[in-house]
Amino acid sequence: MIAMAKIFDEADEILLLNQDTEDKAREIIGDRGNHFLKRIEGETAANISACYQCHRCTNACPVSHYMDVKPHQVIRYIQFGWREKLLKSSTIWVCLSCEMCTTFCPNEVQVAETIIHLRNMAAHSSVAPREKQVALFHQAFLESLQYFGRVNEFWLMVALHLKPIVLKEKIQTGTLTEEMALGFRLFRKGKLKLIPRRCKAMGEIRKLYRQERGEMD
């Protein structure tokens, strides 16, 4: 088992450190067989099996430095069926959807779309997001869209900072005052509009939200 693990160099470092043997064995072999791979390929129409690990996606990625699982590894992990490891990764939240990886992949593997799909999966799973602040921002964005149909930057930031986790961290790291100063500066420049414009057809938009939650009407 350990000999095998050596082949998958970066990956197993985390493995050896963090997991007991049983887990390790399961993840290396990938006890789902092809199931996870097939599922992701089916849902995203991304040709994940075509990847030959050339690292071009990772080299093109502007933020691969900040990722724990690099883009080419994401593709490999899917082939292995390592779902939890992917959903727990910071990669799926750090990715900027800049589409460099997809554009320059020689095999047309849709790397960016795959990562976004994993982010979708993580958002609907019980796995806690590794980058909470980023995840909460997306959530706050969709929430404020639900109220106005459009997004007003001022109210979005207010809603985000009212989230206890965000507020706590901003106070702890001392960035709150800094951000309020920036907000005030933007306001003085006339960049922030305090009164949100509302889309009139809110009924239609709320209906989308109900559909998203699987409610029928």
């Binding site: 959807s97 976004i116 982010r119 997306h138 959530q139 964005f141 969709l142 149909g149 889309c199």
Partner: peptide, 12 residues
């Protein structure tokens, strides 16, 4: 109405 930007395609 809003196009949903990155948030929509991140979450749903």
């Amino acid at each position: 109405s809003c196009c949903g930007a990155t948030a929509a395609h991140s979450l749903s």
